[in-house]
Design a protein around this nucleic acid. Sequence first.
DNA 1: ATTTTTTTTTGACTTAAGTCAAGGCATTGG
DNA 2: CCAATGCCTTGACTTAAGTCAAAAAAAAAT
Lengths: 228, 228
Amino acid sequence: MKKILHIIAEAPLFNGLAEDQLNQVRQIAVDKFYDKGKTIFLDGDDCNGFYIVADGEVKIYKVSFEGKEHILHIYGPGNPFGEVPVFSGRKFPASAQTLLKSHLLFFPRTAFVGLISSNPSLALNMLAVLSMRLRQFTVQIENLSLKEVPGRLASYLLYLTEEQERLDSVTLNISKGQLASLLGTIPETLSRIIGKMNKQHLIEARGREIKILDFSGMEDLAEYGKLQ
Amino acid sequence: MKKILHIIAEAPLFNGLAEDQLNQVRQIAVDKFYDKGKTIFLDGDDCNGFYIVADGEVKIYKVSFEGKEHILHIYGPGNPFGEVPVFSGRKFPASAQTLLKSHLLFFPRTAFVGLISSNPSLALNMLAVLSMRLRQFTVQIENLSLKEVPGRLASYLLYLTEEQERLDSVTLNISKGQLASLLGTIPETLSRIIGKMNKQHLIEARGREIKILDFSGMEDLAEYGKLQ
DNA sequence: ATTTTTTTTTGACTTAAGTCAAGGCATTGG
DNA sequence: CCAATGCCTTGACTTAAGTCAAAAAAAAAT
């Protein structure tokens, strides 16, 4: 299966590895296929390995006692997830579910730890991946505790323009309900704020298509955080 | 200097390393001494290495545009900090300041990456440290977005009883103002909630000494999050 | 001990965002 | 084409927590 080797070679985690190292990685990877909306693991489950998204989309989330859900990340092709318990032992700290029909690569814990031990550049790549995650979490905590919802939405939309390499418009790849959960709020509040931003000509939202009309206004909002 | 070698040997990061490996680590460590309240680095500063607290206490924090501060972590002896940019390149994602007169060990980036490359168990230890951090962040984000302030305070106090190995009472090692910042709120709100918890005989707070009167009540609060 | 400074508490008020409930819109499938 | 389901929006209301200001308490300095 050449295709899987190609996916592996493209993943940031295996960036810069030599041919035979990639083959070793390929050896231990196990294909897993999931339909849309299927649970991959739940918060607290025992962990015997981690995953990389080959194709599709996965959400990582926490659920409160009352059943309210907070999405921590949404990962697409090339992204690893579920690596935390591989190195810190114990259980998964959050749950994972597919948002689309997905093809995942599963890496069994012991085999992978073995690879890392004999492969310094793989270890450094993994350290880089975890460090990037920590960086993202720092930003998320900053957003949650130091910004109000309009500021968080503005940050997210600006981040999307970069990710989608577009200048002034973005397409949400998730439902607005899920976006609310990702921003740490509820659909009603998000809806009202989008309405307000429309009225103030900051954006022009039509369904999942959002055009940014006032880029610097949005940047101010993302930074200072207030919307009148 | 035998003492430093001892500090290094005790740190989780270097747990289980062989004698000569510890000596190698010792070779590259640089002593740094700071008075109380001194800045070690600021959010956005360039990074040439990371630190381990040998003695004292350090806070890691973010500041909002309006100057409001959110404390992300408080680290004591044995804890490393500032490792993120060592592996993901770029700048520090938050600021660091001493809370007490502190003795730190500084590990220059390139030397340390060199050590890791030739030392699989050190690499795995570092992976474990970063994974634990990610786990803690997951809990913090859950607390911030899914619990109200009373629930966060209850979680924190229960966590302190474990850390201080006490059954029913804890001593805050930081001011209430700083605790408010760590919980993502402000001193006034924290003060009111402590007052309420006192009134309901959940706790008995006298200055920085807090006695937990109703352990299971506090556990409920930490889990479900409501205080009438 | 007494002044000065910092930290904590209290009170009155405002506000962002959550809850509950109903209605509208849109997409899918019979 | 129309029902049916899921998704999004709107309105009225409640509430947790923030702001501002001042007093009280505690800690530090003289």
